[in-house]
Design a protein around this nucleic acid. Sequence first.
DNA 1: AAAAAATTGAGGTACGTACCTCATTAGCAG
DNA 2: CTGCTAATGAGGTACGTACCTCAATTTTTT
Lengths: 340, 340
Amino acid sequence: MRPTTRDLARAAGVSLATVDRVLNGRPNVSEKAMRQVSEAIERIGFVRNLAAANLARSTTYRLRFILPQAGDQYLAEIMEEIRVVNDALKSEMVSAEIVQMAIEDPYLVASYLAAIDPRRVEGVAIMAPESPQVRDALKRLVERGVHVVNFLSGSQQAPGIEFVGIDNYAAGATAARLVGRFCRKERGSIMVIAETMRAQDSSQRRLGFDDVINRDFPHLSVLPSLETHSDMERTRRIIARTLEYNRDVVGLYVLSSEARAPISCAAEFISLNDIIVIAHERTPFSVEGLKSGAIDAVIAQNPGHAVRSAVRLLRARIDGRSVLKSQDQLRIEILLKDNL
Amino acid sequence: MRPTTRDLARAAGVSLATVDRVLNGRPNVSEKAMRQVSEAIERIGFVRNLAAANLARSTTYRLRFILPQAGDQYLAEIMEEIRVVNDALKSEMVSAEIVQMAIEDPYLVASYLAAIDPRRVEGVAIMAPESPQVRDALKRLVERGVHVVNFLSGSQQAPGIEFVGIDNYAAGATAARLVGRFCRKERGSIMVIAETMRAQDSSQRRLGFDDVINRDFPHLSVLPSLETHSDMERTRRIIARTLEYNRDVVGLYVLSSEARAPISCAAEFISLNDIIVIAHERTPFSVEGLKSGAIDAVIAQNPGHAVRSAVRLLRARIDGRSVLKSQDQLRIEILLKDNL
DNA sequence: AAAAAATTGAGGTACGTACCTCATTAGCAG
DNA sequence: CTGCTAATGAGGTACGTACCTCAATTTTTT
């Protein structure tokens, strides 16, 4: 059988109480006792039984996902995945609540974060653009003992706050490589559309996209980014104008995670089958586009993986464990019509 | 607080013993009691605390991965991932042992399976080609109460035995789509190399590959599959001969998971930068090839995901739980130099 | 109506760890 | 040496569920 704390105490030549003091970092333990226990742990290969430990201290993992209010299909997918995880992990004392708010308002978000009660919430996953207000509020939240991850957006490396998501520079570079290799025309320009370039993810993607096109596909040129601001009328207008002034458009790259509106608009003015179209995220719309040939490739970060990754990370932090970093490295997926 | 079995008993108006009988499917329970308990479960939202349950019945998850002896880098990656999982899940009573054997010998494998003691092993993940002997041995193993998954190979739908791995037909189709779209030449033929076409995964991939090329890229033609049988000399010889008789080769597709030998051989006779090269699985070799440009794309099934998926599946079966099917759907990953 | 069988309840112990109290001992300063 | 504090041990309870026994009750069969 596996060694228990009792076996460990015997092997270390100390009492159960001392083992407990060492294992849980309680005060009043001599150097010597500490050494004896650590040595015995190695020697007999003791591993704490997490289930029993959590049972004893009746740990709960009450997590909260803070998400935007606005959003189309991709946001819906994410929320669905959160609900699935919430159901599936009930028996392991995990609950994952969703809270939606006007995430673009830093003051609102910061005040919400300030009001979180550490006795009622152990972990927070937040999908918010970076801003000084939010950054500070998160820092204070961490200080109050709540674990936090930046979820698919925000800073990739804030101190004490982990990031779950893909490398957006690399995602843009991948999109560029696909455009370049798929494109059969010798010359031409590529239209780029985003919701707003103020979001870090979009600007990172654009950077990666430009770098690869300029370096490896110099015969192609990239047009200035068009910003839709989620406004259909505006979107239609700027696309029409861009196509009018650029007769040599051979590709379309949609930076944002919600591609439905911009691609639908573009389809009104140009035949998507004649140009290379690359979008982000798997949604009912993008899947349909891949199948029909309107979209040539989709760069995706799996929302299910992302959600589970965030939950795993927060759970590990709450347990004071470290995590398998490899598992939580989100992959940049490339979807074609054949590998849906 | 969360309702416990005690609360459930009170809510159902029965004793704790009866609740236990219902929850654990023990005999001697009246229809009525059963109904009362089920109804109360719904009403108060009772969810069994898995940690406590497993503690009480002192469940262990002793898993065994049965792998081939032969194999190059991909097999090494898989074994490394198994070791990582083994370490990481020690505290959750999971152990994952690796056993290697001459997996191509159905009689050997079958006799090994027959000798497995159900009291010492709860689950088995096996990476073996399908054969009547192995199929029967697995069936008997399941009957003896051991849970089994086919791991990255074998039948995709045997009764009572789950499959963890990608859809190989779709993987081949994806490879074909990439070759077709990457290829700038108007006409040409594609060389296909496998270790052996008797393995189901290879033949499935070939099928998918042919279907897409024939349907969507009729200007390309696919040469008959070359079989290396893991023999370097033979590999070199057949590649040389094929290239000699087919001056119009524009692409190379390596079906097997270990691409190092065939691609190295091919490089001796043709400049890989001039043709489209597609391989399977992420290995140090294939990553290097992507970076250098020798390989244009890699179709991969993430070994870490595969291992964890198999472990999750087996654990769930041992607990008598159902699993989130979406999570264990292995993705067909496409790797370019930018999204490694 | 009696006997047999099925159902139910009461009460206990166990799993491995956390955390508490209290008594005792060791070590050290004055 | 005394007094004080730090260190240690002994022993307990708790967490929520599983699983056991045995007696009491109800239902079914004869």
